[in-house]
């Protein structure tokens, strides 16, 4: 790890004014310190934000929930408001990482995790995400874990988060503070597809700090399910994950939300598929057709064609489990 300056501001205003292109905010540190140990990130200045008053989980006037950026993943997953009203989010968080890491990792930091593409992590090889313009060895290399949707010639990495897949399905809103003021970013716009600038994972500017993540009132608590498929039973990143949430009126689907993890540079949603589901009966045939429609756009690489079939089965199973009232019932 490189030497760096350290400061611990007491309020958000001070934190964003301390920030620069060469600084990083640190909260849980679970990904940032790992990247620093690999010399993939070499900040000159770490700004410790753990003293900021961003630890509350509270109900909003519009019936939703505002989650402070510093709430730990464990505290969030086990918060009564989240367990009862947003079980999809609890399930997704508990499907990720380990208990130790969930105790440390923050809500804001989870959004800013970087890909676990092994070429990105290997400083001895080119990587467009690490060194723009240097090339992508994954595209023609070992790409079993890589993207099947929304990739570009420049990058085929996937986003590693489980929590973000549920936040995408729940249409969370990210609150950020910069030097010039505060703004909100809808979750679908927060993370980027790689395009020709894979070095940028998201829309945040250097001086912007995530202060909160807001959940809208609709939590789909009755009919939702998070399904994660990975190489071992626990503590591994998703090959494919699915956050499925339904609003049902008898057998008819009033509203559907479907987000996929492990398949793209960001949590993957397809609004056309969700709209197609609305008004149809929540049957196996409907779910199979929706999965096929979503995966028509899949462009598998040499080693990850299995993900297309896996994603199809996972979508059908997650939607079926959601329609049955989630896994627990």
């Amino acid at each position: 790890m490189n030497p760096f300056q350290y400061s611990k501001p007491a309020d958000v205003h001070e934190a964003v004014h301390l920030s620069s292109a060469a600084s990083r905010f640190i909260a849980g540190g679970t990904n940032l310190l790992d990247l620093m140990k690999e010399n993939l990130t070499r900040p000159e200045h770490l700004i410790d934000i753990t003293g900021l008053p961003l630890r509350e989980v509270k109900e909003t006037a519009s019936g939703g929930v505002m989650i402070g950026a510093l709430v730990s993943n464990a505290d969030l997953a086990w918060h009564p408001l989240i367990e009862q009203r947003y079980p999809l989010l609890s399930q997704a968080i508990l499907a990720g990482a380990s208990p130790q890491l969930r105790n440390m990792a923050s809500t804001g930091g989870n959004l800013l995790q970087r890909t676990r593409c092994y070429y990105f992590y290997d400083a001895s090889v080119p990587c467009n995400k690490r060194e723009p313009g240097s090339g992508c060895p994954a595209r023609d290399g070992l790409n079993r874990i890589h993207a099947i949707l929304g990739a570009s010639t420049h990058c085929v990495a996937t986003h590693p988060s489980d929590m973000c897949v549920a936040l995408a399905a729940l249409e969370a809103i990210v609150h950020v503070q910069g030097r010039d003021g505060a703004r909100t970013i809808v979750f679908a716009d927060f993370h980027r597809l790689p395009g020709d600038a894979p070095e940028r994972d998201n829309q945040l500017a250097d001086d912007e700090l995530i202060t909160a993540v807001e959940l809208p009132a609709a939590g789909f608590a009755e009919y939702s399910h998070y399904l994660k498929i990975r190489d071992r039973a626990s503590y591994a990143f998703a090959l494919v994950s699915v956050a499925a949430a339904l609003d049902l009126s008898g057998p008819a689907i009033r509203e559907a939300r479907l987000a996929l993890g492990g398949v793209a540079h960001k949590p993957w949603r397809d609004n056309a598929v969700e709209q197609w589901l609305e008004g149809r009966a929540a049957t196996h045939e409907t779910f199979c057709a929706a999965a096929d429609m979503l995966l028509q756009k899949a462009e598998p690489l040499e080693h990850n064609a299995f993900k297309v079939k896996l994603a199809r089965e996972a979508i059908v199973r997650a939607l079926s489990d959601a329609a049955r009232g989630g896994q627990a019932r």
Partner: peptide, 11 residues
């Protein structure tokens, strides 16, 4: 429980 390897002492 936390991982001491990913915790900065200064924090």
């Amino acid at each position: 429980r936390v991982n001491a390897c990913l915790t900065l002492a200064v924090m």
